[in-house]
Design a protein around this nucleic acid. Structure first.
Length: 630
DNA sequence: CGACTGGAAATTTTT
DNA sequence: TTTCCAGTCG
């Protein structure tokens, strides 16, 4: 009874299309959800509905996302929608964390030990650098290049052996050699990289039918977020897991696909229709976020893309204010325009905005500097999204190397790192590690009498790691502060293996300390990429110039140009009520002052949406050189 | 091995 | 301009 009433309440908050998406039953479902159309709400409500209305046990639902943040939000929202008697919400996690769980449990069937290490990008670089040196390959082959080729292969499920077999030409031959050696070393270290988590899961599911069936039976319903961001490996995992019942729900929007360069393939939306002929598609096109003016601008841009379907968003919101375009003389002028507008917007009057309502978006991180300087001058508080990640800091990686080595003595990258920190140090550490991993230590760990925090402190103590730091040095104090922060993460995960999983797969918030409280009352500066999934009252998109947005690297290629266009689309649709666009006629790039043309994307926004007709000339620009199709 | 230096390069980022 | 890296020197 309570469930019935709750259910009606749940559905009453939804528009007809959302309701249909929540309650659709019996066939695989593709929800094409436009920006700001209530995608998360729909997906979470569907999960809650499956539980309360269809009696699906929560543990039979698998909800996959791309970021831990999204997973966390989904979990929270489902929990709020659920009847308290249903106890715990379904598993919601990233593809990678799900795969890691599967492989820890059942990887033994394909020769993985359950304590495998997970190598991050810098671990990968370490290995590849030594490989290039050891194989005597010439140094023109850079580790990042080799790695990105290897990663591409893995995204496409091409193994090292297969690659070596079909490869042609000098360059590819070299990559093949590195790839083979790289896989050998990973195996020797009992380690997987991020891509391996996916590809090994595919391998496991393909070769071990019993294991696959176990998971098929376990997960009666699979829901996937951001389908346009899946790569081939992820697609395969879903296809394999979706058993006979085809109880699959995916949500996506091709127009927001901006990660092709790291393997995402929005065409997975189309492939779905081939693999599941009985697929039902529901469009969510009502937008709850932006003014009609902003939506019209976004649509004007995105409709130029030819290679994917485009949703026509509409809203009941007001038409809203016109879009403000500023032609700056230079990047400095642009920065002061943004600054002055923010001062005006936030000055005390009835309509004034909070700093936290405002975001400034740009194409490249380097663009933030000028803006930051202008903000500092004017005393505008801001937070910069991006920068050195917490777990990438040297002091953190050092300590983690010791701890990883305790958990997996074969881990060669951690071993090398630990050795580098000093011979005596390492010798002392090894003694300690032996004691910990003795039967006695194991028992203590199992009994939870030897926690991650205990281990961390013991390691720091025996290695005298803190001797590296000077209490009077400001930078060193910050590093000590980071170590304290790591200790507090350790408190949350008393089991060493769970702790290591956490730090490998979950990026800590920028600076864990001040993420919550002090993010308030600040303007957000970030790339358009990072803005995906977020929304702000006021959005500035700066640097709308040919060569910057679209970026010069994408001008030669139609596919990439369309991705740049999607990036602009994503940027524009972040704005709820006010949108500012700007470009600089002259800009300092790599210390050189160059002049640039306004971005073609500005010309694609209908002229009447702009505040004044500042646009004369933009439409006239000649892009035929690059834009053969348009 | 670590600090210095000269030259080349210079998106986007999560797991 | 800044940043990163390879090569060199102490």
């Amino acid at each position: 009874m309570a469930s019935k009433a709750g259910d009606a309440a749940i559905l009453s908050n939804l528009n007809p299309a959302q309701q249909e998406a929540v309650t659709f039953w019996g066939r695989p479902l593709l929800i094409l959800a436009g920006a700001g159309s209530g995608k998360t709400k729909t997906l979470t409500t569907r999960a809650a509905w499956l539980i309360s209305e269809k009696g699906i046990p929560p543990q039979s639902i698998l909800l996959l996302t791309f970021t831990n943040k999204a997973a966390g939000e989904m979990k929270d929202r489902i929990a709020k929608l659920m009847d308290p008697k249903d106890a715990y919400p379904p598993f919601a996690g990233t593809f990678h964390s799900f795969c890691a769980k599967v492989l820890r449990r059942d990887g033994k069937f394909i020769g993985l030990s359950s304590n495998f290490a997970i190598y991050d990008t810098s671990d990968q670089q370490d290995i590849v650098k030594t490989i290039i040196a050891n194989l005597g390959l010439d140094k023109s082959l850079k580790a990042p290049v080799a790695l990105s080729m290897i990663s591409q292969c893995k995204n496409e499920l091409v193994s090292a052996l297969e690659y070596a077999e079909f490869t042609r030409g000098e360059f590819q031959k070299k990559i093949a050699k590195v790839y083979l050696e790289y896989q050998r070393l990973l195996k020797e270290s009992s380690a997987l990289d991020f891509d391996d988590l996916l590809t090994e899961t595919v391998k496991l599911f393909k070769t071990e039918k019993d294991v696959l069936n176990k998971y098929r039976n376990l997960f009666q319903h699979i829901l996937v977020d951001e389908w346009q961001d899946t790569n081939k490996a992820q697609y395969q995992i879903i296809k394999l897991l979706t058993g006979r019942d085809h109880n699959l729900t995916v949500v996506g929007d091709a127009a927001q696909s901006i990660y092709k360069w790291r393997g995402a393939d929005y065409r997975n939306i189309n492939y779905l229709q081939v693999d599941f002929p009985d697929l039902k598609t529901i469009n969510l096109e009502q937008n709850y976020r932006s003014t009609q003016t902003i939506l019209d601008a976004a649509h004007g841009v995105i409709k130029k893309n030819r290679s994917h379907p485009i949703l026509q968003l509409w809203t009941n919101n007001k038409k809203g204010e016109k879009i403000k375009l500023y032609q700056a003389r230079s990047e400095l002028d642009e920065a002061s325009f943004v600054t002055e507008e923010i001062v005006k917007l936030t000055s005390k009057n009835k309509q004034s905005k909070e700093y936290s309502d405002i975001a400034v978006l740009y194409r490249t991180n380097a663009q933030s500097r000028v803006i930051e300087e202008a903000f500092l001058h004017r005393g505008i508080p801001y937070t910069l999204v991006g920068g050195v990640k917490f777990y990438e800091r040297k002091e953190i990686k050092d300590i983690l190397a010791y701890l990883r080595l305790v958990a997996n003595p074969k881990d060669s990258v951690s071993n090398k790192r630990a050795e580098k920190l000093g011979k005596t140090r390492f010798a002392n550490f090894c003694q300690l590690a032996e004691k910990i991993m003795s039967d006695e230590g194991r028992v203590l760990m199992d009994k939870k009498e030897l926690t991650t925090l205990d281990l961390l402190d013991k390691v720091v103590q025996t290695t005298k790691y803190l001797e590296f730091f000077d209490q009077k040095n400001e930078d060193d104090l910050a590093r000590l502060e980071n170590i304290k922060e790591l200790r507090s993460v350790a408190t949350e995960f008393p089991n060493l293996f769970e702790f290591l999983e956490q730090v490998a797969l979950v990026e800590a918030a920028q600076s864990p300390k001040n993420s919550e409280s002090s993010n308030n009352g600040k303007v957000t500066l970030m790339t358009a990429h990072s803005a995906k999934g977020l929304e702000f009252e006021v959005v500035f998109i700066v640097g709308l110039e040919e060569g910057l947005l679209p970026h010069s690297r994408s001008l030669m290629n139609q596919e990439e140009l369309e991705e740049e266009r999607r990036l602009v689309y994503v940027g524009i649709t972040r704005a709820k009520c006010l949108l500012y666009l700007s470009y600089a006629q002259k800009r300092l790039i790599f210390g050189q002052r160059g002049s640039s043309m306004p971005s073609r994307f500005l010309g694609e926004i209908p002229n009447h949406l702009f505040e004044s007709s500042a646009l004369v000339g933009i439409k006239k620009n000649n892009y035929e050189l690059y834009d053969i199709d348009f």
